[in-house]
Computed example of a mutant assay.
Amino acid sequence: MGSEGHWGDRARLDQFLQAYAVERATIEARKNGHSVTEQKLDNGSIKLTIRVGGAL
Score class of each variant (00 low, 15 high):
43 N>P: 09
21 A>N: 05
38 E>C: 06
15 Q>H: 11
26 T>I: 10
23 E>W: 01
15 Q>W: 05
32 N>W: 03
37 T>H: 04
50 I>K: 10
55 A>P: 02
7 W>T: 06
20 Y>V: 00
3 S>Y: 09
28 E>M: 10
44 G>K: 07
24 R>G: 12
33 G>F: 08
38 E>D: 00
32 N>K: 13
53 G>A: 05
20 Y>W: 13
3 S>D: 02
26 T>G: 15
19 A>F: 00
31 K>H: 07
38 E>K: 06
2 G>F: 03
5 G>D: 06
9 D>N: 15
56 L>Q: 10
28 E>N: 12
14 D>R: 05
23 E>S: 02
34 H>I: 01
28 E>T: 14
43 N>H: 04
44 G>N: 10
20 Y>Q: 00
3 S>W: 06
31 K>Q: 10
18 Q>M: 07
26 T>N: 08
9 D>K: 14
21 A>E: 03
50 I>A: 07
56 L>G: 13
50 I>P: 13
6 H>R: 04
37 T>I: 08
15 Q>K: 14
17 L>W: 01
34 H>T: 00
23 E>L: 01
21 A>K: 03
50 I>L: 13
55 A>H: 08
1 M>G: 13
30 R>S: 13
54 G>Y: 06
56 L>E: 12
17 L>G: 01
7 W>P: 03
23 E>T: 05
10 R>W: 03
37 T>N: 08
12 R>P: 05
51 R>M: 15
15 Q>F: 04
26 T>A: 15
50 I>Y: 12
